[in-house]
Amino acid sequence: MLLIRCPYCETARPEVEFRHGGEALMERPRDPSRASDAEWIDYLYMRRNPKGPHAERWRHVHGCGRFFNCLRDTVSDRIVVTWRAGEPVPEVTDGDGA
């Protein structure tokens, strides 16, 4: 079971309290009616699947209820860093995170 630091509760919490929310930093077209089919399909379906650090959304659904962002290494499962939704991606220094 992973430990994930909730940036709102400001503590590391057990994985069972969280729900995964897919890839982070996906931009919903500001005016969907003006988006081309290709742009909209890109937003709907196209996702990265990197080997290594991956920006993900998680929600502390059985805690404070907030969505937040998380950089997780898909190879080692290490949670590199978590940060609040809407805030800039933090500079990663080794040893950050949960």
Partner: peptide
């Protein structure tokens, strides 16, 4: 609720 909170917290902020 998850779906509604998702849009409230991250799109319709």
């Amino acid at each position: 609720l998850h779906h509604m909170e998702d849009f409230l917290q991250t799109e319709f902020t």
